[in-house]
Design a protein around this nucleic acid. Sequence first.
DNA 1: ATGTCC
Length: 464
Amino acid sequence: MKTKITGHDLKALGFTQGKWMKEAITYINGNKLEGEEMKTYLEQFKSPDPIGLHTTAVDFSINIKAENEEEKYNVDKVINSMQTLMKTPTLVGGAIMPDACPAGPDGTIPVGGVAVAKNAIHPGMHSADICCSVMLTDFGKADPKDILDAAHANTHFGPGGRDRDSQFRFPKALLEAFESNYFLKDGNMLQIARSHLGTQGDGNHFLFVGTSKKTGNTMMVTHHGSRGPGARLYTKGMKIAERFRKELSPDTKKQNAWIPFETEEGQSYWDALQIIRAWTKTNHEVLHNSVAETLELEIENRYWNEHNFVFKHGNLFYHAKGATPMDAKFMPDITGPRLIPLNMSEPVLIVEGNTTKTNLGFAPHGAGRNVSRTQHRKSKTGSTMQIFKEETLGLDIRFFSKEIDITELPSAYKNAKAVRQQMDEFNLGEVIDEVMPYGCIMAGDWQKNAPWKVRREKKKQNRK
DNA sequence: ATGTCC
């Protein structure tokens, strides 16, 4: 006489534990299935065969050239990492831009990288700062200093969000969108989305004012991403992707895990990305509008583009981590030209372009870093104030925290001329206008006087 | 990237 089948027996047959087991055991025992009959019934619960890596890396186009030894080291590292990345089973194409910089362990998409996946969204390939973007408003013949002063009074840099009394109104459409989405609906997420609206964060984010080379008009350009809400979505997305990776493709590197588009999770994540994009666009708009309102100015023109995002075309998902989408097919709602900033002392480029065989429809997103922040800080041994003055001569540069961030000065970035020259050489968009710098605001080194740093400094002093 | 852990 045969004993009843248990979950233990099914695991011994190589099945993975799951919700399905309870029902299956009842069915098997209820219908007294055994032998071949049971095996046939269990077929439906078999895990799919693991998806292996591509045996050879998928080809990708290299739109970058090293100009010196330091850059050669960086470019080699970027190319090596891309070669590992391009073995990810979902990928069918890729490219790197002239401002490419290595990021993370080998096989991680570099900043300045594009990766094209079939039917898959890879949270690790669109960057942690989802929808990091640039927006421009043309304020006509306004005085650049007035714009910078008003913007300085209205914007917010540094960690966290706004106090309750200085928050912008949270649009109802955004509220409803957040509440409708699995990834975005929790209360904490909404609270952060409210308080972070109209904030720019830190790092390389900026508020830039300058004048058009073509018209002389005063233009304001903001650069920032999705702040807290986007960072949280990214973390959640990576967790879901990791669950799929373990089940579908354990050989895939953790940072390259994906969410299959044709799943409930895939659809929700895709929707969440679009909602975060709408939030981020609003995050720019409230700042630009507040300047117009403060100064009672007419807005003559406005456009924007993201450079960290996933763009869908058919069943292909173009992941851009620090690459400017040029082809209109990526952005049904974007009508203006694109914006490519370089550094605080250089113009913001206004660019148009299209797909070629080698650019995949993208251009660089900026100048890119020469060396890491830490390395750059170490290389600058003189007086910070002196270096700041030399590198920003004639410009009105302000740090929101009132502390200079030496790692954001022009010397931290790749040579702007070289990046522009490589844009020409590799056919990465045509510059149609330039916003000549008047001044800009960045977060500055807000951590300089943080309690833990002050404590560390004191210890150092005591040892001397 | 980020109220650097819901």
